[in-house]
């Protein structure tokens, strides 16, 4: 067991350095950096060598510790309606994490007069900073500059700083509206296939005056038809046909009118003058607005029965 670890420890520097260069994914990269940092701390404590597995375990614990502080602090911030963490959140999270080990003043944490800033953990950290020799990380870590996100951020900031006026309701991450002066109206006006912008169509109609417009002072203008409409045919009351035939044979005009509905066959508007309607269709005054071949004859030859 021993000689094995010895041989490993002799190779320590080389074994640690190797995976750093080979790591590709960001998590591996960050982990290998953390491993170097942890091994530096171990060295400063007094260790001369390490088992690789032990070092990896300690690094894992260290990263988990970091993440535990972060999640606990962000939870504390979120529970008091903030998105950014402050000193108090960090102290709270440190208290949470150290509650297993115990610390001075832990029993008085929840008293009303307790001041978080006087926490013994904070004092311990201050002592640590004061009394341990500074061992900075071996080499500077290059920040990823010119990454896509940062560029986008920069552009956003620039566009905002230029002084484009945007309402407070517009989210910051949305792009700006196009500049009004740059928009060439002539270009936009005529599209390839005779399509037109919706607002232009609207204007034309307004000129025509045929569109009823709601919203101008709440007044609803009169709706008129632009042209004479074509004929429309439809039949209602098919079952009455036989009866109608009878009528015709007898020389009377039925027009397929179902007297109850007041609508007749042939798409005509038929007004039945109720006053003169004595017995059935006897004295019907029939107004035909537009002619239809079938009924035309009947109209002209309307026999006074």
């Amino acid at each position: 067991m021993k000689p094995k670890s010895k041989s490993k420890s002799e190779k320590k520097t080389s074994t640690i350095a190797a995976p750093t260069t080979a790591s590709s994914t960001p998590s591996e990269f960050s982990f290998s950096i953390a491993r170097i940092a942890v091994s530096q701390i171990c060295q400063s404590v007094g260790f001369r060598a390490t088992q690789l597995s032990a070092l990896e375990t300690l690094t894992h614990v260290a990263t988990k510790y970091l993440q535990a502080i972060a999640s606990s602090a962000s939870f504390a911030a979120a529970s008091s309606n903030r998105t950014q963490c402050n000193l108090f959140d960090i102290i709270e999270s440190l208290h949470d994490l150290h509650s297993i080990h115990g610390f001075a003043g832990a029993s008085t944490l929840h008293k009303t007069n307790y001041c978080l800033l006087g926490s013994s953990i904070l004092v311990g950290l201050a002592d640590f900073v004061e009394h341990t020799t500074e061992t900075p990380f071996t080499r500077p870590i290059p920040r990823l500059e010119n990454s896509a996100e940062e560029l986008a951020e920069k552009q956003l900031d620039q566009s905002i700083s230029i002084g484009m006026v945007r309402g407070p309701h517009v989210p910051r991450w949305l792009p700006e509206f196009p500049d009004r002066s740059r928009c060439d109206v002539g270009l936009v006006d005529k599209r390839r296939k005779g399509e037109e912008l919706w607002e232009n169509c609207l204007e034309e109609r307004k000129i025509g005056g045929n569109v009823s417009e709601i919203g101008n002072g709440g007044a609803v203008t009169k709706m008129e038809l632009a042209q004479k409409r074509g004929k429309v045919r439809f039949r209602i009351g098919v079952g009455v046909e036989e009866e109608e035939k009878k009528f015709r044979e007898e020389g009377r005009v039925g027009l397929g009118v179902n007297s109850k509905s007041g609508v007749c066959k042939g798409g005509k508007r038929v007004c039945l003058d109720r006053e003169k309607c004595g017995n059935g269709f006897k004295n019907c005054k029939i107004l035909l607005q537009s002619a239809d071949d079938d009924v035309d004859n009947g109209d002209e030859n309307l026999p006074p029965i």
Partner: peptide
């Protein structure tokens, strides 16, 4: 000893701003 960049990375991963 733990570089700022590394700490920021892990903090950001856990939603710490």
């Amino acid at each position: 000893t733990i570089p700022d960049e590394l700490v920021e990375h892990y903090l950001g991963k856990s939603g710490f701003q």
